[in-house]
Amino acid sequence: MADTELVLLGSRRARQGRRSPLRRRIAGARWSYVYVLPMLVLLAAFVVYPIIASLGYTFYRWDGIGDPTEFVGLDNFLKVMKDFIFWKALRNTFLYVVIVVPLQLVIALALALVLNNPRLRLRNLYRTLFFLPVVTSAAVIAVVVQLLFSNFGDVVNDVLMSLGITNTYIDWLGDPTFAMIIIMGVGVWHTLGYNLVYFLAGLQTIPGELYEAAKLDGAGAIASFRYITVPMLRSVGVVILLLSIIGSFQIFDLVQVLTNGGPYFATEVVNTYIYHLAFGGASSTAVQPDVGLASAASFFYGLLLIVFAVVQAVFLRTLVSRRGGRA
């Protein structure tokens, strides 16, 4: 295919003489450019340009008001790297990803397998049930979760104490350990719906005949899962895994609204850390915001993520090709 194209190109070039084939190809594809242009304009103006602008800010100490003037070179990056809060936030973020992603994907896949059965009645209702949390905004989740725990956490405490499981009251969202567990739980609850429908979509691409044939061959449910579902779902599964990991690394608003990173950074994740740098800390203390430092932190984090993504991609690729080769 590529070869024929090359040959064609070559012969065209020979025929066209002076006129460059590139220009001809560009002219020929003019409508393609017109169609892709609006997307590129939006992307350039509101995504790429702010990224580049922020890169410039990383070299300044700047409160985000007025224009940046105080050039500090690479100081901001050094400061971030030396800040123990950053590393603690990074550790918390990884902990969140490592626990939430597998937990959520396993639940989502199991549910998707059950709900994909066309003979299951009410399956649309169930899909709706489990997807619904996705439409909720973080602000509303914060209100409800806060209300539930602060008003009725005592009820749970009383039960736990009467059963002799605990002997003191637990401040659910104010305890370093439980606050993180709650954030993870709410995180699974909030975004499970996305992964559920991704898996459902992936399962729908598997032809039903495969299962029929397997059944005729006497394969049980476990066998067809093992030998049909898993291999057929592998490439989609990798995409879902990647999306889930990328999304979890950007965890922000749930933490911000539920605990604001506290107590004492026990639930601080990188994005809340950066946010606190950019907008100042808690409202009670007049901490000077430093957008330069925040930008440096976010670029440093972005670099770490890209390195991580490359390592992960290489790892997954070998995994897919090796397993794919065997299957």
């Binding site: 506290g262 107590p263 004492y264 950074f265 026990a266 800390g281 808690a282 009670s284 901490v287």
Partner: peptide, 17 residues
């Protein structure tokens, strides 16, 4: 700004961290 400041340190002490 010095990070962590008194609100954080107080919370860290109170929660036993």
């Amino acid at each position: 700004p010095a990070q962590p400041d008194i609100p954080d340190v107080a919370a860290g002490i109170y929660t036993g961290q």
